[in-house]
Computed example of a mutant assay.
Amino acid sequence: MNGDAELLLVDWLAQLEPHWRLLLFAAVGIIAGLGLDVIVRRVPLAVEQAWLEEMQAADASGTPPLHAPSHPAALPSAAMTRAGSLASPHLARLDTAPTRRWQLSLLSGVLSVAISWRFGPTWQSIGALGLVWTLIALAYIDYDTQLLPDMLTLPLLWVGLLCNLGHWFAALPAAVVGAAAGYMSLWALYWVYWWLRRREGMGFGDFKLYAALGAWFGWTALLQILTLACLLAIVVAGSAWIAGRLRSDQMFPFGAFLAAAGIATLFCGNGLMIWIGGTP
């Protein structure tokens, strides 16, 4: 968060005693976690169903679909649905984890309490709740399916810019530049990797999520977010590769690490920029 941003009080929240405010945020977070469970299970299925309908319409008309899946992980799933299976294995298994609901509720509740503690009875707290809940949903969806749906990433980007009309988390010019720079930087890396290896290194959803984080935190936070995400990915993917659970040529959910880095930046600010010699 930009250290120059002014904390804007929400009057009715400010009137609550701190312990009651923490309990309120905990309860709201737990309830939100139940909603996140529905989103994590239903949104990928809705995206896949939309792809299936578009492919069937394209088959009927003899024209290519306008919005074909851009992420390679989506292609086998779309092919399976086209062949007659209404839900691919990696999406169908989303309904087979009953503990996921309580895991999401606990994580959402804990982070919501942390937001109340970090930002107090302010409008920044309200905005941070929406940001964190959306990032949790995106991280789980990307982990499960390697998809980052536009119906979540694009609203996250626009809401970030709207919040920063009041400089809640960054100055508006920095947020606009952050959104553009976030998208274009990963877009450029994508094509460099394609030119060198002749295969995709990430999905387009990663570009949009990185742009959304730039819209929330400004361009000065982008290097920190990418650095943290890469470090997390190296540790997790490297451990999975050593354990034999990940092939060297297998895609992994980088968006989940971007989401985790975004949550860390929300709570810790741009402190890493000082360590690497930049400007916080």
Rank of each mutant, 00 (worst) to 15 (best):
G205E: 01
Q146W: 04
D150C: 07
I141D: 00
W117L: 12
C163R: 01
A79W: 08
L111P: 00
I115R: 02
L231D: 03
A237V: 13
A50Q: 10
V177K: 07
G33M: 00
V177T: 14
V28E: 04
C163Y: 08
A26L: 15
A87H: 04
W51K: 02
G178Y: 05
N2M: 09
R82N: 10
D142I: 06
I141M: 02
R42C: 03
R198G: 03
L157M: 14
T220K: 12
L129S: 04
L172C: 05
A57R: 13
G166A: 13
I263A: 08
P121Q: 02
A259I: 06
S105M: 15
A74Q: 14
I30D: 00
D37E: 12
A261T: 07
G277Q: 10
L66G: 09
W168H: 09
T96Q: 15
R82H: 12
T279K: 07
W123V: 11
G203D: 00
R198P: 07
W102E: 05
G120N: 10
R247T: 13
W219T: 09
F254C: 09
I30Y: 09
A212H: 10
L86N: 12
V177R: 08
W20E: 07
T96Y: 08
T220H: 15
I141N: 01
V159L: 15
V192I: 15
Y190T: 11
G130A: 12
L66R: 14
E200T: 13
A26R: 03
A181N: 05
A83E: 15
W219H: 14
L154R: 12
L131W: 02
L106W: 13
T265W: 01
W187Y: 11
Y193E: 02
A211E: 06
W20F: 11
S185N: 01
W158Q: 03
I126Q: 01
A212N: 09
T145F: 05
V177P: 00
W216H: 02
I234P: 00
S77F: 01
L161M: 03
T96R: 15
Q49C: 02
P89M: 12
T265G: 08
D206Q: 11
R245D: 10
Q49P: 00
A87T: 14
G3D: 13
A97F: 15
I31F: 13
A92C: 05
E200F: 01
